[in-house]
């Protein structure tokens, strides 16, 4: 009786163009990359490219736009409201990011200790980040209300520390810092949880060695914790800067850019001009003008904070 091995005949590969094509490594790489590339092109490159193109046109909602070159940018260059939105965006991003990182790092260090109900506490501090932004924005809108603010109510009516209610949103600087506070409140959990994850990867033996060498708590933080956290710090900082720079919901829900445009961020101004105002081209130009800032912030985070030598505790070159 013939065995299956006897009857099995290996058929030589056909030498046609399809098999040659699929044997080609470059083609296979291209083919495997195609779905990802397709998604990126459809959902990222095309909208971005369209936005960049619209910024060079005078497209309005409901009408056809024509190419006007740098016309929108020329107009924005002389537009004080645009420059105020740039200033507000930079201020908002810098102050909110510093606040989020200072408080987030502090919270992460606290949570890294052995505390009772540690898991529960960690879950609770995530709440501000989990709550939909619009809901927290509406809550802050009430908290900052000129007539119904709970803060003013306590300070004026209950404690008698102030004579009149605080004008949180009716005065430009009050409004800016009120929004920054809301953004910090919302962003701390993200920073704290990410940094906590980073803290837990630091080997306890490093701290033990430092303590044996007589290092103080501050020296342990400065020479062990901080350098070891730097890689994750760079990544979290990059994300945080991008999220803050492009924030829209908090500002739109709480102030709509007021009073008198003094809290408009570039994102809210772009929306205001493009959708309610109908000037799609101008709105796109404002949105495109955000790109250099975002690239600069990302580059700073990566190249300034992620230098390997610094991370490893060596001197900067």
């Amino acid at each position: 009786m013939a065995t299956s091995a006897d009857t099995y005949v290996v058929r030589p590969a056909e030498d046609n163009w399809i098999s040659r094509l699929f044997d080609n490594k470059a083609f296979l790489i291209f083919l495997c990359m195609l779905p990802a590339a397709g998604l990126l092109i459809v959902f990222l490159t095309y909208p971005l490219g369209l936005g960049v193109w619209l910024a060079f046109t005078d497209q309005r909602i409901g009408g056809r736009g024509e190419f006007i070159g740098l016309g929108n940018y020329y107009w924005l260059w002389g537009d004080p409201i645009f420059w105020m939105s740039v200033w507000n965006t930079v201020l908002y991003t810098v102050v909110a990011t510093v606040g989020k990182f200072a408080l987030g790092l502090w919270l992460a260090l606290l949570l890294n200790h052995h505390l009772p109900f540690k898991s529960l506490l960690r879950a609770i501090i995530l709440i501000p980040w989990i709550v939909p932004t619009v809901l927290s924005a509406i809550a802050f809108w009430w908290i900052y209300d000129p007539q119904f603010s709970i803060i003013s109510y306590v300070l004026v009516d209950k404690l008698g520390l102030l004579d009149s209610y605080i004008n949180f949103l009716g005065e430009p600087w009050n409004a800016r810092f009120s929004l920054i506070f809301a953004n910090i409140w919302r962003g701390i959990p993200f920073v704290a949880i990410c940094l906590l994850a980073g803290l837990q990867t630091i080997s306890p033996s490093l701290y033990e060695a430092a303590m044996l060498d007589g290092a103080t708590a501050w020296q342990r933080f400065k020479h062990v914790t901080f350098p070891m956290l730097m890689p994750i710090l760079a990544v979290v900082l990059t994300f945080s800067v991008i999220f803050t720079f492009t924030d829209f919901q908090l500002v739109y829900a709480i102030t709509r850019g007021g009073p008198v445009n003094s809290t408009h961020l570039m994102a809210t101004l772009a929306f205001q001009r493009a959708i309610p105002g109908g000037q799609l081209g101008e709105g796109a130009a404002i949105a495109v003008a955000m790109i250099p800032f975002l690239i600069a912030a990302t580059m700073f985070s990566y190249f300034a904070l992620a230098r390997r030598k610094w991370q490893q505790g060596e001197g900067n070159d």
Binding site: Y144, D145, P146, Q147, F148, S164, Y165, N167, F168, L169, G170, E171, A175, T255, R256, G258, P259, V260
Partner: peptide
């Protein structure tokens, strides 16, 4: 005006009126 009108959106005057403010 009562303080705070610079930040008023559409529903603020309704709320303030009905709250006797």
């Amino acid at each position: 005006f009562i303080p705070g009108c610079l930040s008023w959106l559409d529903s603020n005057n309704n709320k303030a009126y009905l709250a006797d403010e």
